[in-house]
Design a protein around this nucleic acid. Structure first.
Lengths: 354, 354
DNA sequence: CCCCTTCTTGAAACCGCTTTCAACCATCGG
DNA sequence: CCGATGGTTGAAAGCGGTTTCAAGAAGGGG
């Protein structure tokens, strides 16, 4: 199609004796090996026995031609696919990126290729486009990151058409899924703050996946369990600067002495906002995050938070999908509970407010 | 293949009057529209004129059947593909994730699907596996993140076999690429430190892309230009804790008053290490990072750094690839220079060492 | 020694689409 | 009124594999 302009290194790994000018096909292999095409196919797929001797000739031919079966042709002929799709609203945000890494890794290990389709919003045309992209590619199955409205919408639109497993923060019936149960840890974190002596804890909520995410639920539960006042929720966007602003705002309110942030980035932004307002964390205000972001322990003050292993979640999701594809019974719904990690951003409330 | 277990929402977007139990094919559409298969193909691809009336019938049939052309069949028949591959060593690290997001976004806008193949190391079998994955998928082209040894190896192995553009931090001849020229900014950052009065600037190097990356080169150049001593380089892994350790080590050396870190995460880890060793940034040691990570401005102290727009780099790369695929002359090698951003982590050296 | 199994093998059909290519139709100029 | 011209259309041939099926070879039992 287009000539490479570097004649130097011809990538010997690519087509060793490079005798053809086009990529080798199964017919080329068959010819060179002196066998029929179906025989080559059989050694490729291992679907049926092939005599030792022929198999060997075929293997040699494959190696010598640098032959690589065309995935497209295989899909078409066999009606089954060795690629899965990951659908997510975002690929670069920490938790998402880690989850994607987890499913990619394990999918690759299982011999699957992965295509990534992002659906940025829950707008109908966007969701439709994503569904289209997935379905046109004839994937074996899809893993959906169901942490936000776009994910939820994509799941809804896709689950009837193709094997799907969802990665999520709250268990939900009806869909195979891997879940990182956030509500327990959120509650525990909130209680930690309460036990420190804070009258209540405020909550900064990250964009939720539906009605309510596990983090918010856990926080509310803990407060109710301890019969504490449930302050109004502060909503934050994915952009850290909004967390910063909330920090400056909250710093002015003498009532707030403890805040539970939906994730660590938010916590860091908020702490900075508090700091720039002349208050200190944890002296004047205690802050907890969520996720245990790689920088959470480096931040000054280091964040008290709950560790989420998103990559592991992704691996679980893939395993779930593989099982589903094999027709096995869905794996036990392993919900992993994030362990708490206590660091420097929390302390008893100050004796001298203001 | 496997029954969905939720009979409730049947995803009306997926196959509206769902009359077939299998996905509709082009033949189904042709039959329903009362035209031949090639005619449907023509309205699909727009390759040839079709009478107004037939086109309309076909469109209606497509809509009513919820027909989606099979990408695999299209690839096979047309010998051209509408998917590109991104190959990267890692998908979740900040810069990589952003770059991937950039190429995904623009590829999607251009109508391309994207598969992601990661090559974790430069080990021969790994590189080979990646090459295999790419080539088997019959992609139109690939974008390689050439920021580390695995990327370099993959590039080398792939460039002779398929249209490739590299995303990189240092210009290199012979390969179409989009580059974020890091050396200028690195030099400027180093000079900023020198101008502040520091005797020299130490350097913590992130895993390099080959012999030397632009950041290191720029740093060295600036030092030489100012006839300053070039201290031995500290190497750091991607794991932030190694940066932390280097920080504790450097803090003990009274000679080091300024350090240039290969990226912001490293800078933050290092600052924390310095902090835990009883020294303060920038009072005792000045630190600069690179990238302008979203948290760089929230960190305390906020980082002086150089802003890198990796997503934009990704977009440039895709544009480059598209041009290449159209047979257009490669776009002018737009090298973007990262703008410097001065914040709190740098200051004149302390008058009272120790 | 013969017939029936069991394996291994290749011919042919097919997967869902694109791409010649030739046939057809209508229009148009002479 | 006729042949030339140009635009639409469908039949048929692939694209690169897999799968069905029947044929041939080899092995086994009576």
């Amino acid at each position: 199609m287009s000539q490479r302009q570097t004649p130097s290194y011809d990538g010997s790994m690519t087509h060793p004796p490079a005798t053809l000018d086009r990529p080798a096909t199964i017919a080329d292999v068959a010819r060179l090996a002196g066998v029929s095409v179906p025989t080559v196919s059989r050694v490729l797929t291992g679907a049926a026995r092939v005599s030792e001797e022929r198999r060997h000739r075929v293997d040699k031919a494959i190696a010598s031609l640098g032959y690589r079966p065309s995935a497209a042709a295989q899909v078409l002929a066999s009606r089954r696919s060795m690629t899965i799709a990951i659908v997510a609203a975002n690929t670069s945000r920490y938790g998402y990126a880690e989850a994607i890494r987890g499913v990619e890794e394990s999918a690759r290990a299982a011999g699957y290729a992965v295509i990534i389709v992002v659906v940025e919003s829950e707008r109908n045309d966007e969701v439709r486009a994503a569904v289209d992209a997935v379905l046109r590619q004839s994937v074996a199955g899809v893993v959906i990151l169901k942490f936000d409205p776009p994910g939820v919408a994509a799941l809804k639109a896709l689950q009837s058409a193709v094997p799907v497993v969802a990665l999520s923060g709250v268990p939900e019936a009806g869909v195979p899924q891997a879940v990182l149960d956030e509500s327990e840890a959120a509650a525990a974190l909130t209680e930690h703050l309460l036990n420190l002596g804070h009258a209540t804890v405020h909550h900064v909520r990250i964009p939720p996946s539906g009605k309510e995410d596990g983090r918010t639920t856990g926080w509310r539960l803990a407060l109710q369990r301890h019969r504490k006042w449930v302050p109004p929720i502060e909503d934050v966007s994915w952009d850290v600067t909004t967390a910063y602003e909330i920090g400056t705002r909250l710093a002015k309110d003498p009532e707030v002495t403890a805040v539970f942030c939906g994730n660590d980035e938010t916590a860091m932004g908020l702490i900075r906002g508090v700091f720039d307002s002349g208050k200190k964390v944890p002296r004047d205000i205690s802050v907890v995050g969520f996720d245990d972001h790689p920088l959470a322990s480096m931040f000054i003050p280091a964040l008290t938070t709950a560790r989420q292993d998103f990559a592991e979640l992704g691996r679980h999701g893939t395993a779930q999908l593989m099982a589903l594809l094999e027709g096995e019974s869905p794996l036990a719904l392993e919900t992993v509970e994030p362990p708490l990690v206590f660091r420097e951003s929390t302390a008893p409330p100050s004796k001298h407010p203001r």
